[in-house]
Write a protein that binds this DNA or RNA. Structure first.
Lengths: 204, 204
DNA sequence: CGGGAAGCTGAGCAAGCGCTTAGACGCTCC
DNA sequence: GGAGCGTCTAAGCGCTTGCTCAGCTTCCCG
């Protein structure tokens, strides 16, 4: 319910209405079963239309995945870039980046699952484009960590390895997060921000 | 090459020869394309036989996935349980657990990808069995962290949340690890053991 | 040498797939 | 009022899928 509301909410700016219904239906189906196990008949059915209607709005099933993947990655990148460019110390900016990124992957864990784990089903040219967006996200995190090292706030022997680990930790939230579980997205965001700061800060 | 050798090596005790070839072929195919996108014809072809020969050794395609998943999870659990039961401080045992677990997910990243990310394709009863093994793995990590807290070595406000984060961090290595990349499995294991200790240790 | 199990193949079946087509509906605009 | 357009459906095409089966070979055991 909350999850479904969130799924819909994130795609509010897609028009016409039928196209938006198709995208949200596809997100849910892809997240539950995976791209390859999802049929176009299933997507159309969830959106309340016949199988053929899908092809009026999207040329192929893969184009639906591309749309979802592109929008999701653009949003991720925007969040991380905003945290990087904000005022404040490197610790504050890193904590914000992790908190926001993790919270998004928990709240929108269906979208996150598709965005992060169904990349391999994209066509070659679409895949290349998405990989570009991912590299920019990685650069945003790395840049904050480098600032912290330069300022003497952080003690990080392996900057790119730690960047990878931080991103990996945040992303994997989409895989295991359960909306019926004990923790809210806010709580997980706060916990992870704390854990990441411990990973990079000057040791005692 | 190294990766393929590792893929084969991990399944050395399966007989007869044809069954082992099928399993290693299935691991590679599932890891590359995912379970649903892999055809039984592809698996049989990689193992050097006709599509029909697969069904002499395994009743269904899902049974192949189950076999891979079960053996992989049993090995994971054995590694973590051994680290839990070893001599030494909680710090030493946690570092060993992470180092070994991460190294395995890097060395056997094809197997790891299948084991960790294709669970959802298992039949309901097989899935339930695997979930039991996963819970035991989680308990092993949690137990080491609890020991560290009791001994005053660790400062962990949220034990189960941190346990989840540690496991998640290790598991996700299978997703991003690239054998042609700069880092060896040993190096990643050492880096991650250090990062995890920083997450749990008393802050100075 | 003979018989039966085990391993394997070529051919193919039923079902389900992504996607297309022909045609009908309702809307706007002149 | 009817032409034109965007939206949608029922039907179905061509293909691939997981899986089966009759029959062939190979090898062990007496």
């Amino acid at each position: 319910m909350a999850a479904e509301a969130a799924t819909g909410e994130a795609w509010g700016d897609i028009t016409p209405d039928a196209a938006r219904r198709l995208v949200t239906a596809a997100v849910q189906a892809f997240a539950e079963r995976g791209y390859h196990a999802t049929t176009t008949r299933d997507i159309a059915g969830r959106a309340g239309m016949s199988p053929a209607a899908l092809y009026i709005h999207y040329k192929t099933k893969e184009e639906l995945l591309y749309q979802i993947s592109k929008v999701g990655h653009q949003r991720s990148l925007a969040m991380l870039a905003e945290a990087r460019d904000a005022e404040g110390t490197a610790s504050e900016r890193l904590a914000t980046a992790v908190r926001v990124f993790v919270r998004w992957h928990a709240e929108h864990h269906t979208t996150g699952r598709v965005v992060q784990y169904e990349l391999g089903a994209l066509a070659a040219d679409h895949y290349a484009e998405i990989v570009g967006l991912r590299r920019q996200s990685e650069e945003a995190i790395r840049s904050i960590i480098e600032d912290g090292v330069d300022d003497g706030e952080f003690d990080v022997p392996d900057v790119s390895g730690t960047t990878l680990a931080v991103l990996s930790l945040c992303i994997d939230v989409a895989r295991w997060f359960n909306p019926d579980g004990r923790r809210t997205p806010d709580e997980i965001g706060a916990l992870y921000a704390d854990l990441v700061l411990r990973m990079v800060r000057q040791t005692g």
